[in-house]
Structure formats: structure tokens, C-alpha cells
């Protein structure tokens, strides 16, 4: 590490802690993604009752990632975690076509929340390893993501189990925060 980057790191130290919110339907792969981000073992995942939180270091940022359960019963609690969110990660199971409509509705509701106004959103088209997975562009079209105009957004194809695409998503997060500050 060069001296300059070291200095830069110190300079930005006080405000480099970010609050990242991880949402999506049950079985979308949120917890697997969280563990993948934290480089933890992903073979023993169980359905999330309540929430999980982990801190991940990336490019000088400390990302506090909040993974909230996606079960219908828990969704009403999502709003309790909206405040002070820096980036929203929304995870979609690309193989679960039957529930594309449901996940689109949930996303629409979240994006219309006042507390999340202007917060950048990254949509993970997860489970690309499944043979019947819809592609990222297919999902973007189905969910009419192009109509999002009040914030920066991005869709990223990924497979949380293999880790493919996860790093690219994380890079997008860090880049968009830098641009903001």
C-alpha cells in the first residue's frame, strides 16, 4: 500500500462506515449473499427469523450489512430498518418465475418509501447458476426498472453460492458512494 492511499484512508476514516440494507422475498438468497460478502461458510444456511448483521471491509469502507428475513410475516418489519440507509440491495431468485410479480410489487413499495428516497439501489439477479434462471435483462424488463428515475440503480447478475458477480456488485456500491461524497 502506498503512502498516499494510506493517507487517503485516514482522511476518509470518520465517514466511511456505510449502512447497507439487504431485502428480498424469502428464499431469494439474502443470507447466502451476506455470508459470501463476509467470506463465510455458506453450506449451513437456515431461513432467517428476524435479521442478521455483518460488517464487511471493502475498499476502505466499513459496510454494515443488514439482512432482514423475507418471509411475508416479517416484511412489515422491513420499514423499521429503512432509516439512514446508504445503499439498498434487493435480491431476486431468478429461477422463481412464479413470484416475479410478487417481488416486483415488494420492490415497488420499498422504492416509494419516503425514508428511502434517493437511496441507490442495486438489484441482484441471483441464482444465475440455475438452468431455468431468467437473465438480468429479462428481469430488468419484467420489473420495468427503466422507470426508476429518482435514484441511481443497477441490476447485477450473480450466483451467491459460487460468488460470481457478487464482487462486481460490491464494486458498484463503493463507486456510487464515492460519487455521492
Amino acid at each position: 500500500m502506498g503512502l498516499l492511499s494510506l493517507l487517503r484512508k485516514f482522511k476518509t476514516a470518520p465517514d466511511c462506515e456505510l449502512r447497507i440494507l439487504l431485502l428480498g422475498l424469502d428464499n431469494a438468497g439474502k443470507t447466502t449473499l451476506l455470508k459470501q460478502l463476509a467470506s463465510e461458510d455458506i453450506t449451513h444456511i437456515t431461513p432467517t427469523q428476524g435479521f442478521n448483521i455483518k460488517s464487511v471491509q471493502s475498499e476502505g469502507f466499513k459496510l454494515n450489512v443488514w439482512d432482514i428475513g423475507g418471509q411475508r410475516k416479517i416484511r412489515p418489519y422491513w420499514r423499521n430498518y429503512f432509516e439512514n440507509t446508504d445503499v439498498l440491495l434487493y435480491v431476486i431468485d431468478s429461477g422463481d418465475r412464479k413470484r416475479f410479480e410478487e417481488t416486483g410489487q415488494e420492490l415497488g413499495e420499498i422504492l416509494s418509501e419516503e425514508k428511502l428516497a434517493g437511496v441507490p439501489v442495486l438489484i441482484f439477479a441471483n441464482k444465475q447458476d440455475l438452468f431455468n434462471a431468467a437473465s438480468a435483462s429479462e428481469i430488468a424488463e419484467g420489473l420495468q426498472l427503466h422507470t426508476i428515475r429518482d435514484r441511481t440503480w443497477q441490476i447485477q447478475a450473480c450466483s451467491a453460492t459460487s460468488g460470481e458477480g457478487v464482487k462486481d456488485g460490491l464494486d458498484w456500491v463503493c463507486k456510487n458512494i464515492k460519487r455521492k461524497s
Partner: peptide, 17 residues
């Protein structure tokens, strides 16, 4: 859901276990 599965089909709830 009455016995505490997440949705209409428990198949996806067993996950890593």
C-alpha cells in the same frame, strides 16, 4: 404457514439443514 413454514411450499425452507 400455520405450522410455521414461510410460504405455500415448505420444500425451500429446509435449506442447508
Amino acid at each position: 404457514q400455520e405450522i410455521g413454514f414461510q410460504g405455500n411450499d415448505p420444500a425451500t425452507d429446509f435449506r442447508g439443514m
